[in-house]
Design a binder for these strands. Structure first.
Lengths: 161, 161
DNA sequence: AAAAAATAGTTGCAATTGTCCACTATCTAG
DNA sequence: CTAGATAGTGGACAATTGCAACTATTTTTT
């Protein structure tokens, strides 16, 4: 029978990724997407969900009382205006307070609140666990390797010693 | 002299990253930020700048004529609506065309245009070079390792075989 | 063969985000 | 004392993205 045969569509299994197959940045970008989404889900409603930086800010303010917005901005790769808004938000949520530095009236010092400190405890646990879970399918030793490399990359990017 | 001494502010060198120091997801997120920005700079005005997915879409349509939007959506981890807009954009820019599949009238097939094909050539070179440059400070063998691990992660996430 | 469920794509809405730029205040250096 | 750098603020704007509802078509079930 010479019936018109349906050409099977290109399905997900047939795909090769072209040059992206060997492009590190492609994998970084996509894995980031997935891990960030997963993290957001777990933070549902947690006052520090969505976007990069809230978590880092919370933890940094908690463990470095008096730290300045501009320093955190450098850590999370944001400009000062974005950082300012982030601090606004967290202040409104009662997680931290701003004070003008007595040493330099241009600068601010950030301090954690009681509520912020409590949240920090939870977030520390949650973030650690999430990362562990998400990458659980990678063997321990490879995880360490991966982390070592990415840590170096990050420190270089952020200008850390 | 007992003058009031200025307390030196917490500076970038004094920071320790708390639990983030050992959190893979933190590094993925920050390195992603940096590498994506760098990429965007190089793509300035290039019709496929900003956001994830345009590049992948271009290359996939170029190397898999007739591929469907939903298949690409799965590769770039987006939902159908986001994918639709992406295709709108690229169609408006004259990079690809849509046709309704004769086999399945619900589905579309995407085809590259001349302009799109030319851009694909450039983008292939640019993306490859960018990734190479950006991670140049990592030794070759570590890069390979990193890529192997992340590739596995990606394939798992995207549901590839 | 008819009804139900699954799939592909579109659209509206809203929220988020990030960026750019200009502006003020303050500090530091020459 | 002036010039230039630095910290933070605020506005406007563009772009992405995500959700949910909706249509059309195909496939499965009964």
């Amino acid at each position: 029978m010479l019936e018109p045969k349906k050409t099977p569509p290109i399905s997900i299994g047939d795909i090769d990724l072209d040059v992206l197959e060997d492009t590190l940045s492609f994998y970084i970008r996509t894995v980031n997407l997935a891990v960030s989404r997963d993290l957001d889900e777990r933070l549902e409603g947690c006052d520090v969900a969505r976007g990069t930086g809230k978590i880092t800010t919370l933890l940094m303010v908690d463990s470095h009382p008096g730290i300045r917005p501009s320093v955190i901005a450098q850590l999370i790769l944001k400009d000062r205006s974005a950082m300012g808004r982030l601090v606004d938000q967290m202040e409104n949520h009662g997680l931290l307070t701003r004070e003008t530095s007595v040493d330099d009236n241009r600068a601010q010092e950030l301090y954690i609140t009681e509520k912020g400190a409590q949240l920090a405890v939870q977030v520390r646990a949650l973030v650690t666990q999430q990362s562990k879970d998400f990458f659980a399918f990678i063997p321990e030793d490879e995880q360490r390797l991966l982390m070592d490399i990415l840590r170096r990359a990050y420190r270089r990017i952020a200008g850390l010693p």
